[in-house]
Deep mutational scan, measured.
Amino acid sequence: ELSWTAEAEKMLGKVPFFVRKKVRKNTDNYAREIGEPVVTADVFRKAKEHLG
């Protein structure tokens, strides 16, 4: 699991709890794919757009 900024964690907190774990995993995987060592708010937004 990658490191997350406080802002990205806050955004994740707005995701319904029953899918939060999956969203975190998918976002981590997306960040790795694009070469990001940390999940930022920008990476979170891009993952959301990319993953739907």
Results as ranks from 00 to 15, higher is better:
35 G>D: 06
24 R>K: 11
26 N>L: 15
32 R>M: 08
29 N>L: 12
48 K>I: 15
33 E>F: 11
1 E>G: 13
19 V>Y: 14
5 T>V: 03
31 A>K: 00
43 V>Y: 02
29 N>W: 11
16 P>G: 04
9 E>G: 04
4 W>Y: 01
19 V>S: 14
6 A>V: 12
52 G>Y: 09
25 K>C: 11
31 A>F: 01
38 V>H: 06
28 D>W: 02
27 T>K: 02
14 K>F: 08
2 L>E: 03
36 E>P: 01
3 S>H: 13
8 A>G: 02
18 F>E: 14
48 K>M: 15
28 D>Y: 03
8 A>H: 01
12 L>V: 03
46 K>A: 12
29 N>Q: 13
4 W>K: 01
5 T>S: 08
31 A>L: 02
10 K>W: 11
39 V>M: 02
19 V>K: 12
23 V>H: 05
34 I>D: 03
38 V>S: 05
12 L>D: 00
7 E>M: 06
2 L>A: 05
27 T>I: 15
23 V>L: 09
2 L>M: 11
51 L>I: 12
44 F>Y: 09
11 M>I: 06
27 T>W: 04
15 V>G: 03
21 K>D: 15
15 V>I: 11
51 L>Y: 15
32 R>F: 06
1 E>R: 11
38 V>Y: 07
30 Y>K: 02
15 V>K: 03
11 M>N: 04
35 G>A: 05
44 F>E: 01
7 E>F: 04
45 R>V: 12
26 N>D: 14
42 D>F: 04
35 G>R: 06
43 V>T: 06
5 T>A: 04
19 V>R: 11
23 V>F: 09
26 N>M: 15
43 V>P: 01
15 V>W: 08
8 A>W: 00
45 R>W: 09
30 Y>Q: 01
34 I>M: 13
35 G>F: 05
4 W>F: 00
7 E>Y: 04
13 G>Y: 10
34 I>C: 09
17 F>T: 09
52 G>M: 14
45 R>K: 11
6 A>R: 08
38 V>K: 07
52 G>Q: 14
45 R>Y: 07
14 K>R: 08
3 S>D: 09
7 E>D: 08
1 E>D: 11
33 E>H: 10
17 F>C: 10
33 E>W: 11
32 R>C: 06
4 W>S: 00
44 F>D: 01
44 F>W: 05
21 K>Q: 15
11 M>S: 04
8 A>D: 00
